[in-house]
Nucleic acid binder design. Structure first.
Lengths: 161, 161
DNA sequence: ACAATATCATTGGCCGACCAAATATTGCTA
DNA sequence: TAGCAATATTTGGTCGGCCAATGATATTGT
């Protein structure tokens, strides 16, 4: 979503500084997000993955067997997205799913050895991506940006509930 | 793309501060981007649009008749994405396309009156989104964030070329 | 004048992401 | 104990986004 420039110059109303800046952050965030995701996509494609899949694998590697409903909560994505992503990762033998012995509604997910073998390369990919993304940034810049992003994320997750 | 925590604790190597922070910005950016786009999606759905479409309409409103190849360059998205988005907007009578009288390879795009009627509501949507996204931000915060995002975008667009 | 190259847009395919609806199962309450 | 609510997952559909390939047209070089 990006602001239209015509919108802020409605007939008969002066464009003050506040109005001029509305949408500016959203505008910039949208463009950065798209470019970041595209760059991630290019790097991940080198190891046969798509953006988002590496997050899933990393999380499964960290936490071991996990039920899908927990993945939905902790990754913050739609249940159907989790199902389809896992189906694709399963097809590539990177994860395995099995029914819960106690609760037959539940699927439990685990990373496979093949999936685990990718973790090193995944780490290399996002390291390279961050080197690109934050080129020229001092530690102070990174800390400041991380703080601002955290506040944005908090604002956006609050509105979602 | 998000860093795996296991990755930074390789056997036999101490985890220093630098390593700990690798991927952190990318990690945060990924989550903020997703939440921001999801929130944009919800707001835009109220007026029958999808994220990205409002950028297209805004741009066409600002610049009048535009060839598709120029849209590709200025919006920074794939030609096939532009084609398909315009096809959907055309189906909704929000844009119209016609062949260039001089160069038969070229399609020229313009916003329709119906599309133009949406601009006010588009402006309302991104205004509301920015209010949510930047809740609690002082002007200084906004300026600082805008500057940092601009640097990120520049880094990411440089790597793409 | 013709061949080679470049440009423009489209198609097919895949993916993550969401929304809506459906199905199966479990838990809770009267 | 039965009925209902809640939970878990899946399916179908849509969209933006990219990659690869293709066809039509224009430009450039010989």
């Amino acid at each position: 979503m990006e602001p239209s420039r015509t919108a802020t110059s409605a007939p008969g109303s002066d464009v003050c500084d506040d109005e001029q800046r509305v949408g500016e952050i959203g505008h910039a965030l949208f463009r950065v997000a798209r470019a970041h995701r595209a760059a991630a996509g290019r790097l991940l494609r080198e190891i046969g993955l798509y953006p988002g899949q590496e997050v899933m694998l990393g999380r499964l590697a960290d936490h071991g067997d996990t039920r899908q409903s927990r993945l939905v909560l902790e990754l913050g994505i739609d249940p159907s997205t989790v199902t389809k992503m896992l189906q694709r990762l399963e097809r590539q033998d990177l994860v395995e799913r099995r029914p819960d012995p106690v609760d037959r509604r539940v699927s439990v997910v685990a990373i496979t050895a093949k999936g685990r073998d990718l973790l090193g390369r995944i780490e290399d990919s996002w390291r390279r991506l961050d080197e690109i993304t934050c080129a020229g940034f001092e530690d102070e810049d990174r800390v400041r940006l991380a703080g601002l992003l955290e506040r944005l994320e908090h604002n956006l997750s609050t509105c979602q509930e």
